[in-house]
Design a protein around this nucleic acid. Sequence first.
RNA 1: GUGAGUGUAGCUCAGCUUGGUUAGAGCACCGGGUUGUGGCCUCGGUGGUCGAGGGUUCAAAUCCCUUCACUCACCCCA
Length: 425
Amino acid sequence: MELTRLRGFQDLIGPQVRAISFIEEKARALMERYAVREIRIPILERIELYVRSTGATSDIVEKQMYTVERRAESKGEGQMVLRPEGTPGVVRAYIEAGLDRSDPEQRFFYCGPMLRYERPQKGRYREFYQFGVEVFGRADAACDAELLIMIDDLRRELGLELKMELNSLGCADCRPAFRQAVLEYGRAHFAELCEDCHARLERNPLRLLDCKIDAKLAAGAPNSLDYLDEACRKHFDTVRDLLNRAGVVFEVNPRIVRGLDYYMRTTFEISSMALGAQNAVIAGGRYDGLIEELGGAPVPGIGFAIGLDRMALALLESSRKFEVAPEVAMIALGEAATARATEIAHRMRRESNLTVEMLSPDRGLKALLKRADRIGARYAVIIGDNELARGIAQVRELAHSRQQEIAIEEVAATIARELEKIASR
RNA sequence: GUGAGUGUAGCUCAGCUUGGUUAGAGCACCGGGUUGUGGCCUCGGUGGUCGAGGGUUCAAAUCCCUUCACUCACCCCA
């Protein structure tokens, strides 16, 4: 086969797509309760948006973005890229709508594909789906806590065991001192650092802290919490206190460092034990300077994104099943019966709310019953010329090989009633 | 970008070390055993450029080279 999908892209089929939809539905329902409103933003943006927000030296901007070839006659668009993450686009839309000035306190969620050119591996694809939440206009610790509680709610609804880790990176006032301390620590131990860390040191020294190779060295490195100024410390203490009151289980991990420039104060990562190396299923944090950086008013912000693909993988690792089976397989033998069966199937769905799959009528009964079994139907409704003439249908309960003749007009109601009985047991 | 592992039927894999007739199994699919009754059983059938290209050889799934893809990990990150 030569027309294969592109590397790192996936066709989501069967349980995979059902797991993702399941998470999305749960998350959407949760958004309703938290009064978070949906926002839809373009998948294509100007490259500058990410250079200025994500950070010019980040890997995302330096080597992972998909650039789009524009038509020669289009003018003034500059370099366009497929969005590698959601936050900058939402911030842009927020500013562009003038909300930062007219009505700054806003909460949005978005859902959709993101694209990054990376080497694929388990839980990492070039196109991946994110469900993200962004809250603008609130600098208070209660807001941070509310988001984390929201995440805990989702975790509970999905029945997943996840680890929540929290850190504070400090603010524009106190972070520089911390960064400087890490830099100096790194320089002092330069000879002991791994090759990757040598590169990190000047580019993004905070990254030293979550290096896997130099774990021992990182343990002795400066702790961001020791460098928090009074306001940041109080903020972080309040967040933790609110989480404890809400019964949210979390750990403080000073090594949680976000890769993107715009994060400050509260940062967090939620990971799954069920996954491989790419185990962060949710990550986010506060980014109070970002809106201003992108040309808006000085409005604070905080947000997170769920990696839906990863979350789905974790869900599929658990014992949860994502099979779907129709309640009724409709079997028609012959042309006249097919017409009648189509009517009955329609009525079952519309009036009795049953899930009904009509099987291909161009096959023998044996093959059709086999098919009904295969798709996991609970009942097979058989209508042939015999039944048609007598105004009845054979209703077969597959698991028990019980079969009864029921007046065609009564089939839908009878099955619905039986299912109700089973459900109430 | 780096490293390791793997590419044989729709799926899971055997065969490759030591080259040798028509390349196998299980599952799945289709059909018979049952003129209109599934699962279990049984008999049969469809299905393969052995990832691709080149080389060695009388002969290559098997040996050599190149290349591509997939997987996992590094890196990065959701």
